[in-house]
Design a protein around this nucleic acid. Structure first.
Lengths: 150, 150
DNA sequence: CCTCACGTGTCAAGGTCTTGACACTGGGCA
DNA sequence: TGCCCAGTGTCAAGACCTTGACACGTGAGG
C-alpha cells in the first residue's frame, strides 16, 4: 500500500513524548494537590472560574477537557465544601452560572502556587525562549487536531 | 509570602497547553482506533511489544504510563482475541513474558499506520526542525518531573 | 404562529482505571 | 545459613469518567 508508514521508534515519536510529559505532569500535580484535598479536575475548575466568573457547567467542561457530566460531579463536591456557588435559577437559557466563594478563592491561591511550582520545575531545563516556543507549538498541534480529518 | 507566584493566564501556561494537546491527541487516536476495535491502552501495549518482545506486564505498565493492574485487564482482552500470548510459567522471577502473535502483528500494522496519520496531522503545522525540538523539550520536561521534588 | 435545531442540566448504566492488599520469587547482606 | 527487601502477579473494592438518553429554554426559519 502507498500509505504503509507506521509509527517509528518510540524515542522518535512526538506523540509518545507528549503522552509521557502529560502523564508526568498529571502525576506531579496530583501529588501536590492531594495535601490540599483537591483533585486535578477540581483545581482546573477553580482556576477557570477565577479567570472567568459565571461560567456554566458545560463551558467549564470544555475548558477542562472533560464531559459536562464529569464537571457535574466535580461541582457538587466543590459546592458542598463551600468553595463555589451555583445560581439557583438561570438568568438566560438553562445555563447556571457558577462563581467562586471567598473560601474558594483562598483554596485556589494555595493550589495555584503549588501547581505553579510544579510547572516551574517542569520547565526548569528550558529557557524562556524555548518555553515560549513549546507553548506555541503545543497550541498549534492541538489546533491542527481540532479541525476534522480531511 | 515569598513564594506567592500563581499560575498566570491560561494562554501563558505551558501546563495548560500540554494538557490541551494531549487531550486532543488522545481523542483523535481514540477516533481512528475505534473502527479497529482497539483502545488506546491496547494499542500502546501492542506497539511496545513490537519493539521489545517478551516484556512483562509490569514493564508494559510503565511504558504505557498506567498501573500494572490496568495492563492486566488489557492483556486479558488482547489474549482472548489471540493478539498476544502470555508465557504459562515464569522463566525468571515471577515476570511472565508477553509476545505478539501473527494476528497481533497484523492488527498492529493497521493501527500503527492510522496513528501515524494522526501524528502527521498533528505535526503538520511544524517543520522537521521544530518537531525535533518539540520532542526534545517534552522529554526534558518529563525527565525534570520524574526526579523527586527538592 | 409554529416548528426545528442547538445548547444546557440531569439522571442512569457501564466501563476503566486507581488504591489497597496479599502471596510469591529471587537476590543481597549480616 | 537465615533474613529482609525489591519486583511481580493477582484479587477486591471504590472512585472517576464516559456513553446514552431525556427534558427544558432560546432563537432562527418557514
Amino acid at each position: 500500500m502507498s500509505q504503509g508508514e507506521t509509527v517509528g521508534p518510540l524515542g522518535e515519536s512526538a506523540g509518545y513524548a507528549l503522552k509521557q510529559a502529560a502523564s508526568a505532569l498529571r502525576a506531579a500535580m496530583d501529588a501536590v494537590l492531594r495535601p490540599l484535598d483537591l483533585t486535578v479536575p477540581q483545581y482546573a475548575c477553580l482556576e477557570l472560574l477565577e479567570r472567568r466568573p459565571g461560567l456554566s457547567s458545560a463551558e467549564l467542561a470544555r475548558g477542562a477537557f472533560v464531559t459536562r457530566q464529569a464537571t457535574h460531579g466535580v461541582l457538587r463536591g466543590l459546592a458542598e465544601r463551600g468553595l463555589v456557588t451555583r445560581a439557583p435559577s438561570a438568568p438566560h437559557g438553562r445555563a447556571l452560572p457558577v462563581e467562586l466563594t471567598d473560601a474558594g478563592r483562598e483554596a485556589l491561591r494555595a493550589a495555584s502556587t503549588a501547581v505553579r511550582a510544579v510547572e516551574r520545575r517542569m520547565l526548569a531545563p528550558l529557557g524562556a525562549e524555548r518555553e515560549r516556543r513549546l507553548r506555541e507549538d503545543l497550541a498549534a498541534c492541538a489546533a491542527a487536531l481540532a479541525e476534522p480529518a480531511p
